[in-house]
Write a protein that binds this DNA or RNA. Structure first.
Lengths: 258, 258
DNA sequence: CGCAGTCTTGAGACAGATCAACTCACGTGG
DNA sequence: CCACGTGAGTTGATCTGTCTCAAGACTGCG
Protein backbone atom coordinates (compact mmCIF):
# COMPACT_ATOMS: atom_id res chain seq x y z
CA UNK A 1 0.00 0.00 0.00
CA UNK A 2 3.05 2.18 0.41
CA UNK A 3 5.08 3.50 -2.44
CA UNK A 4 2.79 2.77 -5.32
CA UNK A 5 -0.21 4.25 -3.56
CA UNK A 6 -0.05 7.76 -4.95
CA UNK A 7 0.72 6.85 -8.48
CA UNK A 8 -1.99 4.20 -8.39
CA UNK A 9 -4.30 6.84 -6.99
CA UNK A 10 -3.51 9.17 -9.83
CA UNK A 11 -4.18 6.45 -12.34
CA UNK A 12 -7.49 5.74 -10.66
CA UNK A 13 -8.67 9.29 -11.08
CA UNK A 14 -7.54 9.38 -14.66
CA UNK A 15 -9.42 6.17 -15.31
CA UNK A 16 -12.54 7.66 -13.80
CA UNK A 17 -12.28 10.74 -15.95
CA UNK A 18 -11.91 8.59 -19.01
CA UNK A 19 -15.11 6.79 -18.12
CA UNK A 20 -17.23 9.92 -17.95
CA UNK A 21 -19.59 10.58 -20.82
CA UNK A 22 -17.99 12.98 -23.27
CA UNK A 23 -20.68 15.63 -23.15
CA UNK A 24 -20.27 19.11 -24.59
CA UNK A 25 -18.72 21.35 -21.99
CA UNK A 26 -18.51 18.50 -19.57
CA UNK A 27 -14.91 19.19 -18.79
CA UNK A 28 -15.44 21.67 -15.95
CA UNK A 29 -17.96 19.34 -14.37
CA UNK A 30 -15.47 16.52 -14.64
CA UNK A 31 -12.91 18.71 -12.89
CA UNK A 32 -15.26 19.45 -10.08
CA UNK A 33 -16.26 15.82 -9.75
CA UNK A 34 -12.65 14.76 -9.55
CA UNK A 35 -12.09 17.40 -6.88
CA UNK A 36 -14.47 15.72 -4.47
CA UNK A 37 -13.39 12.19 -5.37
CA UNK A 38 -11.14 10.45 -2.91
CA UNK A 39 -8.61 8.09 -4.40
CA UNK A 40 -7.66 5.19 -2.27
CA UNK A 41 -6.00 1.85 -2.46
CA UNK A 42 -7.24 -1.26 -0.73
CA UNK A 43 -4.97 -4.23 -0.14
CA UNK A 44 -6.41 -7.71 -0.55
CA UNK A 45 -8.78 -8.38 2.31
CA UNK A 46 -9.07 -4.76 3.42
CA UNK A 47 -12.44 -3.10 3.41
CA UNK A 48 -13.76 0.36 2.78
CA UNK A 49 -14.43 1.97 6.15
CA UNK A 50 -18.19 1.66 6.50
CA UNK A 51 -19.09 5.28 7.08
CA UNK A 52 -22.72 4.96 8.10
CA UNK A 53 -23.50 8.65 7.75
CA UNK A 54 -23.73 9.02 4.02
CA UNK A 55 -24.28 7.12 0.81
CA UNK A 56 -21.27 6.83 -1.41
CA UNK A 57 -20.58 6.24 -5.04
CA UNK A 58 -17.47 4.26 -5.76
CA UNK A 59 -15.65 3.92 -9.05
CA UNK A 60 -13.50 0.82 -9.35
CA UNK A 61 -10.42 1.81 -11.32
CA UNK A 62 -8.62 -1.49 -10.93
CA UNK A 63 -8.68 -4.81 -9.12
CA UNK A 64 -11.73 -6.66 -7.86
CA UNK A 65 -13.99 -6.34 -4.85
CA UNK A 66 -17.10 -7.77 -3.31
CA UNK A 67 -20.05 -5.88 -1.86
CA UNK A 68 -21.27 -7.66 1.26
CA UNK A 69 -24.06 -7.24 3.76
CA UNK A 70 -23.33 -8.32 7.28
CA UNK A 71 -26.05 -9.64 9.57
CA UNK A 72 -26.08 -7.33 12.57
CA UNK A 73 -26.60 -9.68 15.49
CA UNK A 74 -26.04 -13.29 14.67
CA UNK A 75 -23.10 -14.09 12.46
CA UNK A 76 -23.59 -17.23 10.43
CA UNK A 77 -23.26 -16.16 6.83
CA UNK A 78 -22.59 -12.79 5.34
CA UNK A 79 -24.34 -12.32 2.06
CA UNK A 80 -22.33 -11.29 -0.97
CA UNK A 81 -24.47 -8.90 -2.97
CA UNK A 82 -22.22 -8.43 -5.92
CA UNK A 83 -18.73 -8.74 -7.31
CA UNK A 84 -17.12 -5.77 -8.98
CA UNK A 85 -14.23 -5.30 -11.31
CA UNK A 86 -12.34 -2.52 -13.02
CA UNK A 87 -14.67 -0.03 -14.67
CA UNK A 88 -17.66 -0.61 -12.41
CA UNK A 89 -19.40 2.28 -10.73
CA UNK A 90 -21.20 1.12 -7.61
CA UNK A 91 -23.36 2.78 -5.03
CA UNK A 92 -22.64 1.81 -1.47
CA UNK A 93 -25.73 2.87 0.39
CA UNK A 94 -25.53 3.41 4.09
CA UNK A 95 -27.55 1.39 6.56
CA UNK A 96 -30.16 -0.79 5.00
CA UNK A 97 -32.22 0.88 7.70
CA UNK A 98 -33.93 -1.46 10.04
CA UNK A 99 -33.73 -4.88 8.55
CA UNK A 100 -31.85 -7.64 10.23
CA UNK A 101 -28.90 -6.77 8.07
CA UNK A 102 -26.26 -4.34 9.16
CA UNK A 103 -24.40 -2.12 6.81
CA UNK A 104 -23.06 -2.75 3.35
CA UNK A 105 -19.34 -3.02 2.92
CA UNK A 106 -16.98 -3.11 0.03
CA UNK A 107 -14.20 -5.62 0.58
CA UNK A 108 -11.16 -5.98 -1.66
CA UNK A 109 -10.68 -9.43 -3.21
CA UNK A 110 -7.40 -8.34 -4.73
CA UNK A 111 -5.47 -5.13 -4.35
CA UNK A 112 -7.59 -2.48 -5.92
CA UNK A 113 -7.76 1.20 -6.74
CA UNK A 114 -10.94 3.08 -5.96
CA UNK A 115 -12.34 6.57 -6.31
CA UNK A 116 -14.85 7.32 -3.57
CA UNK A 117 -17.46 10.07 -3.84
CA UNK A 118 -19.99 11.30 -1.33
CA UNK A 119 -23.22 10.54 -3.19
CA UNK A 120 -24.96 13.77 -2.23
CA UNK A 121 -22.22 16.06 -3.40
CA UNK A 122 -21.59 14.01 -6.49
CA UNK A 123 -25.21 14.38 -7.50
CA UNK A 124 -25.24 18.08 -6.60
CA UNK A 125 -22.40 18.62 -9.05
CA UNK A 126 -23.78 16.25 -11.63
CA UNK A 127 -26.96 18.27 -11.56
CA UNK A 128 -25.11 21.02 -13.40
CA UNK A 129 -24.43 18.64 -16.21
CA UNK A 130 -27.67 16.85 -17.07
CA UNK A 131 -25.79 14.49 -19.34
CA UNK A 132 -23.80 13.11 -16.45
CA UNK A 133 -26.81 12.95 -14.16
CA UNK A 134 -28.83 11.19 -16.76
CA UNK A 135 -26.02 8.82 -17.47
CA UNK A 136 -25.96 7.86 -13.83
CA UNK A 137 -29.73 7.46 -13.86
CA UNK A 138 -29.61 5.26 -16.93
CA UNK A 139 -27.03 3.07 -15.22
CA UNK A 140 -29.20 2.84 -12.15
CA UNK A 141 -32.22 1.75 -14.12
CA UNK A 142 -30.09 -0.81 -15.91
CA UNK A 143 -28.72 -1.97 -12.61
CA UNK A 144 -32.22 -2.28 -11.23
CA UNK A 145 -33.19 -4.26 -14.26
CA UNK A 146 -30.27 -6.63 -13.82
CA UNK A 147 -30.92 -6.99 -10.16
CA UNK A 148 -34.54 -7.85 -10.87
CA UNK A 149 -33.58 -10.32 -13.55
CA UNK A 150 -31.10 -11.92 -11.22
CA UNK A 151 -33.60 -12.07 -8.41
CA UNK A 152 -35.98 -13.74 -10.74
CA UNK A 153 -33.41 -16.36 -11.61
CA UNK A 154 -32.39 -16.93 -8.02
CA UNK A 155 -36.00 -17.73 -7.26
CA UNK A 156 -36.14 -20.97 -9.16
CA UNK A 157 -32.84 -22.13 -10.51
CA UNK A 158 -31.01 -25.26 -9.50
CA UNK A 159 -27.58 -25.20 -7.93
CA UNK A 160 -26.01 -26.47 -11.15
CA UNK A 161 -27.66 -23.74 -13.21
CA UNK A 162 -26.53 -21.06 -10.78
CA UNK A 163 -22.93 -22.20 -10.88
CA UNK A 164 -22.96 -22.41 -14.65
CA UNK A 165 -24.49 -18.96 -14.83
CA UNK A 166 -21.89 -17.64 -12.44
CA UNK A 167 -19.05 -19.04 -14.52
CA UNK A 168 -20.46 -17.68 -17.77
CA UNK A 169 -20.88 -14.30 -16.17
CA UNK A 170 -17.32 -14.31 -14.84
CA UNK A 171 -15.92 -15.38 -18.18
CA UNK A 172 -17.71 -12.50 -19.77
CA UNK A 173 -16.70 -9.89 -17.25
CA UNK A 174 -13.12 -11.00 -16.75
CA UNK A 175 -12.17 -11.95 -20.26
CA UNK A 176 -14.98 -10.62 -22.45
CA UNK A 177 -15.48 -14.13 -23.69
CA UNK A 178 -19.06 -15.15 -24.46
CA UNK A 179 -18.56 -18.34 -26.41
CA UNK A 180 -15.94 -20.99 -27.10
CA UNK A 181 -13.21 -21.66 -24.57
CA UNK A 182 -11.46 -19.41 -22.11
CA UNK A 183 -9.45 -19.46 -18.92
CA UNK A 184 -9.04 -17.06 -16.05
CA UNK A 185 -8.35 -16.77 -12.34
CA UNK A 186 -11.28 -16.42 -9.99
CA UNK A 187 -10.41 -13.72 -7.47
CA UNK A 188 -12.98 -14.92 -4.95
CA UNK A 189 -13.12 -17.97 -2.68
CA UNK A 190 -15.63 -20.79 -2.84
CA UNK A 191 -17.26 -19.32 0.20
CA UNK A 192 -17.74 -16.00 -1.58
CA UNK A 193 -19.25 -17.77 -4.56
CA UNK A 194 -21.61 -19.69 -2.33
CA UNK A 195 -22.60 -16.61 -0.38
CA UNK A 196 -23.38 -14.75 -3.56
CA UNK A 197 -25.44 -17.58 -5.01
CA UNK A 198 -27.24 -18.63 -1.87
CA UNK A 199 -25.51 -22.01 -1.80
CA UNK A 200 -23.22 -23.73 0.67
CA UNK A 201 -19.53 -24.09 0.03
CA UNK A 202 -19.97 -27.87 -0.24
CA UNK A 203 -22.61 -27.57 -2.91
CA UNK A 204 -20.43 -25.20 -4.91
CA UNK A 205 -17.60 -27.68 -4.74
CA UNK A 206 -19.81 -30.60 -5.73
CA UNK A 207 -21.24 -28.76 -8.71
CA UNK A 208 -17.79 -27.79 -9.91
CA UNK A 209 -16.78 -31.42 -9.65
CA UNK A 210 -19.77 -32.39 -11.71
CA UNK A 211 -18.92 -29.87 -14.40
CA UNK A 212 -15.34 -31.12 -14.33
CA UNK A 213 -16.51 -34.66 -14.87
CA UNK A 214 -18.70 -33.45 -17.71
CA UNK A 215 -15.60 -32.05 -19.35
CA UNK A 216 -16.84 -28.47 -19.31
CA UNK A 217 -14.51 -27.17 -16.66
CA UNK A 218 -10.95 -27.68 -15.55
CA UNK A 219 -9.40 -26.30 -12.41
CA UNK A 220 -5.81 -25.82 -11.41
CA UNK A 221 -4.83 -24.80 -7.93
CA UNK A 222 -7.35 -22.82 -5.94
CA UNK A 223 -8.36 -20.15 -8.34
CA UNK A 224 -7.37 -20.95 -11.88
CA UNK A 225 -10.21 -22.20 -13.98
CA UNK A 226 -10.72 -22.89 -17.64
CA UNK A 227 -13.98 -23.37 -19.46
CA UNK A 228 -13.97 -25.51 -22.56
CA UNK A 229 -17.32 -24.37 -23.90
CA UNK A 230 -18.87 -21.18 -22.60
CA UNK A 231 -21.90 -21.52 -24.83
CA UNK A 232 -22.65 -24.96 -23.43
CA UNK A 233 -22.42 -23.59 -19.92
CA UNK A 234 -24.75 -20.78 -20.88
CA UNK A 235 -27.23 -23.34 -22.11
CA UNK A 236 -26.86 -25.24 -18.85
CA UNK A 237 -27.48 -21.99 -17.00
CA UNK A 238 -30.79 -21.67 -18.74
CA UNK A 239 -29.84 -18.69 -20.83
CA UNK A 240 -31.30 -18.40 -24.27
CA UNK A 241 -28.41 -18.27 -26.69
CA UNK A 242 -26.70 -14.93 -26.72
CA UNK A 243 -26.09 -13.76 -23.22
CA UNK A 244 -25.01 -10.39 -21.90
CA UNK A 245 -26.88 -10.74 -18.66
CA UNK A 246 -24.44 -10.08 -15.84
CA UNK A 247 -26.02 -11.98 -13.03
CA UNK A 248 -23.23 -12.21 -10.56
CA UNK A 249 -23.39 -8.61 -9.66
CA UNK A 250 -22.58 -5.67 -11.81
CA UNK A 251 -25.10 -3.04 -10.99
CA UNK A 252 -23.62 -0.01 -12.57
CA UNK A 253 -20.85 -0.73 -14.97
CA UNK A 254 -19.45 2.57 -16.16
CA UNK A 255 -17.76 2.05 -19.44
CA UNK A 256 -19.61 4.21 -21.94
CA UNK A 257 -16.72 4.27 -24.35
CA UNK A 258 -16.07 0.60 -24.81
CA UNK B 1 -62.22 0.49 -19.94
CA UNK B 2 -65.01 2.39 -21.61
CA UNK B 3 -67.12 5.10 -20.09
CA UNK B 4 -65.24 5.77 -16.91
CA UNK B 5 -61.93 5.96 -18.69
CA UNK B 6 -61.71 9.67 -19.13
CA UNK B 7 -62.87 10.76 -15.72
CA UNK B 8 -60.72 8.16 -14.03
CA UNK B 9 -57.94 9.24 -16.31
CA UNK B 10 -58.27 12.81 -15.19
CA UNK B 11 -58.04 11.79 -11.58
CA UNK B 12 -54.98 9.71 -12.34
CA UNK B 13 -53.19 12.65 -13.88
CA UNK B 14 -54.11 14.87 -10.96
CA UNK B 15 -52.74 12.27 -8.58
CA UNK B 16 -49.51 12.13 -10.55
CA UNK B 17 -49.12 15.89 -10.46
CA UNK B 18 -49.67 15.87 -6.71
CA UNK B 19 -46.89 13.36 -6.34
CA UNK B 20 -44.28 15.46 -8.12
CA UNK B 21 -41.67 17.16 -5.99
CA UNK B 22 -42.68 20.75 -5.32
CA UNK B 23 -39.61 22.38 -6.80
CA UNK B 24 -39.35 26.09 -7.53
CA UNK B 25 -40.62 26.81 -10.98
CA UNK B 26 -41.46 23.16 -11.45
CA UNK B 27 -44.96 23.92 -12.61
CA UNK B 28 -44.19 24.31 -16.31
CA UNK B 29 -42.18 21.09 -16.24
CA UNK B 30 -45.08 19.36 -14.56
CA UNK B 31 -47.36 20.63 -17.32
CA UNK B 32 -45.09 19.29 -20.00
CA UNK B 33 -44.72 15.97 -18.24
CA UNK B 34 -48.46 15.63 -17.97
CA UNK B 35 -48.75 16.43 -21.64
CA UNK B 36 -46.83 13.32 -22.66
CA UNK B 37 -48.42 11.11 -20.04
CA UNK B 38 -51.07 8.71 -21.22
CA UNK B 39 -53.87 8.03 -18.78
CA UNK B 40 -55.42 4.66 -18.98
CA UNK B 41 -57.59 2.32 -17.05
CA UNK B 42 -57.01 -1.39 -16.75
CA UNK B 43 -59.77 -3.76 -15.69
CA UNK B 44 -58.91 -6.64 -13.40
CA UNK B 45 -56.87 -9.17 -15.34
CA UNK B 46 -56.07 -6.85 -18.24
CA UNK B 47 -52.48 -6.07 -19.02
CA UNK B 48 -50.55 -3.12 -20.34
CA UNK B 49 -49.85 -3.75 -24.01
CA UNK B 50 -46.21 -4.84 -23.99
CA UNK B 51 -44.78 -2.35 -26.44
CA UNK B 52 -41.32 -3.77 -26.98
CA UNK B 53 -39.93 -0.69 -28.69
CA UNK B 54 -39.39 1.61 -25.75
CA UNK B 55 -38.96 1.68 -22.00
CA UNK B 56 -41.82 3.17 -20.09
CA UNK B 57 -42.37 4.79 -16.76
CA UNK B 58 -45.73 4.10 -15.21
CA UNK B 59 -47.36 5.92 -12.35
CA UNK B 60 -49.97 3.91 -10.47
CA UNK B 61 -52.71 6.34 -9.50
CA UNK B 62 -55.03 3.75 -8.07
CA UNK B 63 -55.65 0.03 -7.75
CA UNK B 64 -53.04 -2.72 -7.66
CA UNK B 65 -50.98 -4.49 -10.27
CA UNK B 66 -48.24 -7.06 -10.66
CA UNK B 67 -45.13 -6.82 -12.79
CA UNK B 68 -44.42 -10.19 -14.37
CA UNK B 69 -41.75 -11.69 -16.57
CA UNK B 70 -42.84 -14.38 -18.99
CA UNK B 71 -40.53 -17.16 -20.09
CA UNK B 72 -40.27 -16.91 -23.82
CA UNK B 73 -40.35 -20.52 -24.98
CA UNK B 74 -41.42 -22.97 -22.32
CA UNK B 75 -44.29 -21.93 -20.13
CA UNK B 76 -44.15 -23.48 -16.69
CA UNK B 77 -44.14 -20.56 -14.29
CA UNK B 78 -44.18 -16.86 -14.92
CA UNK B 79 -42.20 -14.96 -12.37
CA UNK B 80 -43.84 -12.12 -10.48
CA UNK B 81 -41.21 -9.45 -10.05
CA UNK B 82 -43.14 -7.06 -7.92
CA UNK B 83 -46.53 -5.94 -6.72
CA UNK B 84 -47.53 -2.32 -7.04
CA UNK B 85 -50.15 -0.16 -5.45
CA UNK B 86 -51.43 3.40 -5.62
CA UNK B 87 -48.62 5.93 -5.51
CA UNK B 88 -45.93 3.71 -6.97
CA UNK B 89 -43.85 4.85 -9.91
CA UNK B 90 -42.47 1.89 -11.80
CA UNK B 91 -40.22 1.47 -14.76
CA UNK B 92 -41.32 -1.15 -17.25
CA UNK B 93 -38.22 -1.83 -19.28
CA UNK B 94 -38.59 -3.37 -22.67
CA UNK B 95 -37.09 -6.72 -23.56
CA UNK B 96 -34.81 -8.12 -20.93
CA UNK B 97 -32.61 -8.53 -23.98
CA UNK B 98 -31.30 -11.99 -24.54
CA UNK B 99 -32.06 -14.00 -21.47
CA UNK B 100 -34.45 -16.87 -21.49
CA UNK B 101 -37.10 -14.47 -20.28
CA UNK B 102 -39.37 -12.62 -22.61
CA UNK B 103 -40.75 -9.21 -21.94
CA UNK B 104 -41.98 -7.61 -18.76
CA UNK B 105 -45.66 -6.97 -18.40
CA UNK B 106 -47.80 -5.03 -16.01
CA UNK B 107 -50.99 -6.92 -15.19
CA UNK B 108 -53.89 -5.45 -13.23
CA UNK B 109 -54.84 -7.34 -10.08
CA UNK B 110 -57.79 -5.06 -9.53
CA UNK B 111 -59.16 -2.29 -11.69
CA UNK B 112 -56.54 0.37 -11.75
CA UNK B 113 -55.69 3.79 -13.07
CA UNK B 114 -52.31 4.37 -14.64
CA UNK B 115 -50.33 7.18 -16.21
CA UNK B 116 -47.92 5.86 -18.80
CA UNK B 117 -44.88 7.82 -19.98
CA UNK B 118 -42.34 7.04 -22.65
CA UNK B 119 -39.17 6.86 -20.54
CA UNK B 120 -36.99 8.68 -23.05
CA UNK B 121 -39.21 11.68 -23.43
CA UNK B 122 -39.99 11.79 -19.74
CA UNK B 123 -36.30 12.00 -18.96
CA UNK B 124 -35.73 14.55 -21.70
CA UNK B 125 -38.26 16.81 -20.08
CA UNK B 126 -37.15 16.04 -16.57
CA UNK B 127 -33.68 17.11 -17.59
CA UNK B 128 -34.93 20.70 -17.62
CA UNK B 129 -35.85 20.39 -14.02
CA UNK B 130 -32.93 18.82 -12.17
CA UNK B 131 -35.06 18.43 -9.05
CA UNK B 132 -37.39 16.07 -10.84
CA UNK B 133 -34.58 14.17 -12.51
CA UNK B 134 -32.76 13.80 -9.27
CA UNK B 135 -35.91 12.72 -7.54
CA UNK B 136 -36.32 9.95 -10.07
CA UNK B 137 -32.69 8.99 -9.62
CA UNK B 138 -33.03 8.89 -5.86
CA UNK B 139 -36.02 6.60 -6.24
CA UNK B 140 -34.09 4.37 -8.58
CA UNK B 141 -31.21 4.02 -6.20
CA UNK B 142 -33.64 3.25 -3.42
CA UNK B 143 -35.37 0.74 -5.62
CA UNK B 144 -32.04 -0.87 -6.43
CA UNK B 145 -31.26 -1.02 -2.78
CA UNK B 146 -34.57 -2.70 -1.99
CA UNK B 147 -34.16 -5.10 -4.83
CA UNK B 148 -30.72 -6.03 -3.59
CA UNK B 149 -31.93 -6.45 -0.06
CA UNK B 150 -34.75 -8.61 -1.27
CA UNK B 151 -32.48 -10.69 -3.44
CA UNK B 152 -30.28 -11.20 -0.46
CA UNK B 153 -33.21 -12.49 1.55
CA UNK B 154 -34.44 -14.73 -1.23
CA UNK B 155 -31.06 -16.38 -1.19
CA UNK B 156 -31.34 -18.02 2.16
CA UNK B 157 -34.69 -17.65 3.79
CA UNK B 158 -37.07 -20.45 4.62
CA UNK B 159 -40.54 -20.63 3.16
CA UNK B 160 -42.05 -19.64 6.48
CA UNK B 161 -39.86 -16.57 6.77
CA UNK B 162 -40.69 -15.52 3.23
CA UNK B 163 -44.42 -15.75 3.81
CA UNK B 164 -44.15 -13.86 7.09
CA UNK B 165 -42.08 -11.22 5.38
CA UNK B 166 -44.56 -10.98 2.58
CA UNK B 167 -47.45 -10.49 4.99
CA UNK B 168 -45.64 -7.84 7.00
CA UNK B 169 -44.76 -6.03 3.82
CA UNK B 170 -48.34 -6.13 2.57
CA UNK B 171 -49.69 -4.94 5.90
CA UNK B 172 -47.34 -2.01 5.72
CA UNK B 173 -48.08 -1.09 2.15
CA UNK B 174 -51.81 -1.67 2.19
CA UNK B 175 -52.67 -0.34 5.63
CA UNK B 176 -49.55 1.45 6.82
CA UNK B 177 -49.56 -0.84 9.80
CA UNK B 178 -46.14 -1.88 11.15
CA UNK B 179 -47.04 -3.35 14.50
CA UNK B 180 -49.99 -4.69 16.45
CA UNK B 181 -52.96 -6.13 14.60
CA UNK B 182 -54.45 -5.33 11.23
CA UNK B 183 -56.68 -6.77 8.53
CA UNK B 184 -56.87 -6.31 4.79
CA UNK B 185 -57.73 -7.97 1.52
CA UNK B 186 -54.95 -9.49 -0.54
CA UNK B 187 -55.51 -8.51 -4.16
CA UNK B 188 -53.38 -11.33 -5.50
CA UNK B 189 -53.89 -15.09 -5.70
CA UNK B 190 -51.87 -17.74 -3.91
CA UNK B 191 -50.23 -18.47 -7.22
CA UNK B 192 -49.09 -14.88 -7.55
CA UNK B 193 -47.71 -14.95 -4.03
CA UNK B 194 -45.85 -18.15 -4.74
CA UNK B 195 -44.49 -16.86 -8.03
CA UNK B 196 -43.20 -13.73 -6.38
CA UNK B 197 -41.55 -15.61 -3.53
CA UNK B 198 -40.14 -18.51 -5.50
CA UNK B 199 -42.41 -21.01 -3.78
CA UNK B 200 -45.11 -23.35 -4.99
CA UNK B 201 -48.75 -22.68 -4.38
CA UNK B 202 -48.94 -25.69 -2.06
CA UNK B 203 -46.11 -24.45 0.11
CA UNK B 204 -47.74 -21.04 0.38
CA UNK B 205 -50.93 -22.67 1.50
CA UNK B 206 -49.18 -24.89 4.01
CA UNK B 207 -47.28 -22.02 5.54
CA UNK B 208 -50.43 -19.97 5.89
CA UNK B 209 -52.05 -22.90 7.64
CA UNK B 210 -49.13 -23.10 9.98
CA UNK B 211 -49.37 -19.41 10.83
CA UNK B 212 -53.09 -19.85 11.32
CA UNK B 213 -52.49 -22.68 13.77
CA UNK B 214 -49.94 -20.51 15.55
CA UNK B 215 -52.66 -17.92 16.02
CA UNK B 216 -50.84 -15.22 14.09
CA UNK B 217 -53.10 -15.18 11.05
CA UNK B 218 -56.77 -15.61 10.29
CA UNK B 219 -58.26 -15.92 6.85
CA UNK B 220 -61.78 -15.44 5.62
CA UNK B 221 -62.78 -16.38 2.11
CA UNK B 222 -60.07 -16.31 -0.49
CA UNK B 223 -58.52 -12.93 0.03
CA UNK B 224 -59.41 -11.47 3.39
CA UNK B 225 -56.70 -11.85 5.94
CA UNK B 226 -56.07 -10.49 9.39
CA UNK B 227 -52.82 -10.46 11.29
CA UNK B 228 -52.97 -10.51 15.07
CA UNK B 229 -49.40 -9.44 15.67
CA UNK B 230 -47.43 -7.82 12.89
CA UNK B 231 -44.35 -7.39 15.06
CA UNK B 232 -44.28 -11.11 15.79
CA UNK B 233 -44.51 -11.86 12.10
CA UNK B 234 -41.69 -9.44 11.45
CA UNK B 235 -39.61 -11.31 13.97
CA UNK B 236 -40.50 -14.57 12.27
CA UNK B 237 -39.48 -13.04 8.98
CA UNK B 238 -36.03 -12.40 10.35
CA UNK B 239 -36.39 -8.67 10.46
CA UNK B 240 -34.76 -6.85 13.31
CA UNK B 241 -37.49 -4.93 15.07
CA UNK B 242 -38.64 -1.91 13.20
CA UNK B 243 -39.16 -2.73 9.59
CA UNK B 244 -39.77 -0.49 6.59
CA UNK B 245 -38.14 -2.80 4.12
CA UNK B 246 -40.61 -3.36 1.31
CA UNK B 247 -39.53 -6.74 0.09
CA UNK B 248 -42.42 -7.79 -2.01
CA UNK B 249 -41.65 -5.39 -4.72
CA UNK B 250 -41.99 -1.64 -4.59
CA UNK B 251 -39.11 -0.34 -6.60
CA UNK B 252 -39.98 3.27 -6.96
CA UNK B 253 -42.68 4.46 -4.66
CA UNK B 254 -43.42 8.03 -5.54
CA UNK B 255 -44.95 9.72 -2.58
CA UNK B 256 -42.58 12.50 -1.58
CA UNK B 257 -45.26 14.38 0.26
CA UNK B 258 -46.50 11.75 2.65
C1' DC C 1 -78.08 -24.72 -7.66
C1' DG C 2 -74.29 -26.46 -9.92
C1' DC C 3 -70.02 -25.97 -12.11
C1' DA C 4 -65.08 -24.34 -12.53
C1' DG C 5 -61.40 -22.91 -10.64
C1' DT C 6 -58.92 -21.93 -6.29
C1' DC C 7 -57.41 -23.48 -2.17
C1' DT C 8 -56.23 -27.04 1.20
C1' DT C 9 -54.36 -31.37 2.74
C1' DG C 10 -51.71 -35.71 2.32
C1' DA C 11 -47.90 -39.09 0.85
C1' DG C 12 -43.74 -39.71 -1.46
C1' DA C 13 -39.48 -38.13 -3.94
C1' DC C 14 -35.45 -35.28 -4.41
C1' DA C 15 -32.31 -31.35 -4.05
C1' DG C 16 -29.51 -29.11 -1.11
C1' DA C 17 -28.05 -28.39 3.82
C1' DT C 18 -25.59 -30.23 7.57
C1' DC C 19 -22.12 -32.85 9.99
C1' DA C 20 -17.78 -35.05 9.70
C1' DA C 21 -13.50 -36.73 7.74
C1' DC C 22 -10.03 -36.31 4.69
C1' DT C 23 -6.85 -34.13 1.06
C1' DC C 24 -4.48 -30.66 -0.90
C1' DA C 25 -2.52 -25.97 -1.91
C1' DC C 26 0.09 -22.38 -0.38
C1' DG C 27 2.77 -19.61 2.83
C1' DT C 28 6.07 -20.05 6.68
C1' DG C 29 10.07 -21.14 9.14
C1' DG C 30 13.69 -24.12 9.77
C1' DC D 1 15.27 -25.52 -0.56
C1' DC D 2 12.26 -28.46 1.46
C1' DA D 3 9.42 -30.03 5.67
C1' DC D 4 5.59 -28.41 8.03
C1' DG D 5 1.11 -26.48 9.47
C1' DT D 6 -2.96 -23.98 8.61
C1' DG D 7 -6.81 -23.08 6.28
C1' DA D 8 -9.23 -23.91 1.78
C1' DG D 9 -11.22 -27.32 -0.81
C1' DT D 10 -13.09 -31.93 -1.69
C1' DT D 11 -15.78 -35.99 -0.72
C1' DG D 12 -19.08 -38.94 1.78
C1' DA D 13 -23.30 -40.08 4.78
C1' DT D 14 -27.34 -38.45 6.51
C1' DC D 15 -31.21 -35.32 7.32
C1' DT D 16 -34.47 -31.71 6.52
C1' DG D 17 -37.37 -28.69 3.70
C1' DT D 18 -39.61 -27.96 -0.34
C1' DC D 19 -41.41 -29.75 -4.72
C1' DT D 20 -44.26 -33.06 -7.02
C1' DC D 21 -48.18 -35.75 -7.74
C1' DA D 22 -52.84 -36.74 -6.26
C1' DA D 23 -57.17 -36.24 -4.03
C1' DG D 24 -60.43 -33.68 -1.70
C1' DA D 25 -63.02 -29.23 0.07
C1' DC D 26 -64.36 -24.82 -0.49
C1' DT D 27 -65.40 -20.15 -2.80
C1' DG D 28 -67.56 -17.55 -5.89
C1' DC D 29 -69.54 -17.25 -10.25
C1' DG D 30 -73.03 -18.02 -13.78
Amino acid sequence: MATLSTSFGHDSMAAFRDALPVGTGAAPTADRLCAIGDCLHLAKGEQLAPDAREDRLVYVAGGSAKLVAQPVSDSPACQVLAFHFAGDMISVLRQSGNDAWGDFRLVALTDCGLVVFPAERFLDLAQNDPAVLRSVLARSLQALHRSRTRMMQMGHKSAGARIADFLVSMAERLTGCTTGACAFALPMSRRDIGDSLGLTIETVSRQLTELREAGLVETEGRSNISLSDVAALARLAGRAAGNAGSPAGSQSGMTPKS
